[in-house]
């Protein structure tokens, strides 16, 4: 059950997108998200959808993965769509008691749904094609200039790496502890909300205890290997931009430009 979580999952591959510099992928994703929010009409959004689809095609990641990553936020999507339909003034489709759905609302709802889906799909493509280690590495390098302002960039990146590294471990551990308590007759599936919350105690306490133990062991292991922060630390894998990276960046900048152009030509939908 816990094993079905796919957020942040990495699928190793050899596609052009996999091989892009992680820093560039991070920048591209940011541009993509900006473009999604700048777009205020169907034309601009269609451009975004097209480039998103192209990205998935090149990466070789199946679109069914998008469906999977959308599943957990389905309630938010539906909620947004319904709210937009009801609370936007305009020509009514139907009226029921004090609820009034409008054509303008429907249009906006569709726009919003496309935007959220693209947002999730786009950022998922980043994590599907980039290993967590490469990603945190990229974050550290991109925010490097902030070190001048005393931002603990290396420490933050290290924290991210450790957190990502331990998610699967902790999921496995939770599964194990749940099984062990169920074997002792713990009942987690029935009763009132309070009963269920109380049933979590036998799982959370051992989980906390073992997390602290792991943290302690990890700190010791890092010290044994002479870890002393980012100062003077060299890297085995040097990141280097290649021609492909700049082509990819150019494509994304073009997308943003196109979206802005569409905004100027086509009427806004707000």
């Amino acid at each position: 059950m816990l094993k079905d979580i796919t957020i942040g999952q990495y699928f190793p591959g050899e596609s052009a997108i996999h091989r892009l510099d992680p820093r560039m992928k991070l920048i591209m994703t940011t541009i993509y998200i900006v473009a999604l929010f700048v777009a205020n009409n169907v034309g601009g959004l269609l451009v975004c959808v097209a480039i998103g689809l192209a990205g998935y095609l090149i990466s070789g990641i199946s679109l069914s993965m998008v469906k999977k990553s959308l599943k957990p936020i389905m309630p938010i999507i539906i909620f947004t769509a319904v709210l937009n339909m009801i609370f936007v003034d305009g020509k009514p489709i139907f009226e029921f008691w004090i609820i009034k759905a409008t054509y303008e609302g429907l249009q906006l709802a569709v726009l919003m749904v496309i935007r959220i889906v693209c947002l999730i799909a786009g950022s998922s493509l980043l994590t599907y094609t980039t290993s967590p280690i490469a990603l945190t590495d990229a974050v550290e390098r991109l925010f490097d200039p902030l070190k001048k302002f005393n931002m603990p960039v290396h420490e933050l990146a290290m924290m991210m790496t450790i957190a990502l590294r331990f998610i699967p471990t902790l999921i496995e551990e939770t599964d194990k502890i749940m099984s062990a308590q169920k074997a002792r007759g713990a009942d987690m599936e029935s009763g009132t909300i309070i009963d269920r919350a109380r049933a979590l105690i036998p799982i959370l306490i051992p989980l906390f205890v073992s997390s602290f133990r792991r943290a302690d062991e990890l700190a010791l292991a890092m010290e044994c290997r002479c870890y002393h922060g980012g100062e003077g630390r060299t890297r085995m894998k040097q990141l280097k931009y290649t021609g492909n990276d700049f082509v990819a960046l150019a494509v994304l900048v073009m997308v943003l430009a196109l979206v802005i152009a569409m905004n100027l030509i086509l009427p806004s939908m707000y």
Partner: peptide, 24 residues
């Protein structure tokens, strides 16, 4: 289970051993 000591959670040993029978 393997390494069953990681499932202990109660305040006292007595209460922890009683967890199963209480559930019964």
């Amino acid at each position: 289970f393997q390494y069953p000591e990681y499932q202990l959670f109660e305040e006292t040993v007595e209460k922890d051993i009683a967890f199963g029978p209480t559930n019964m």
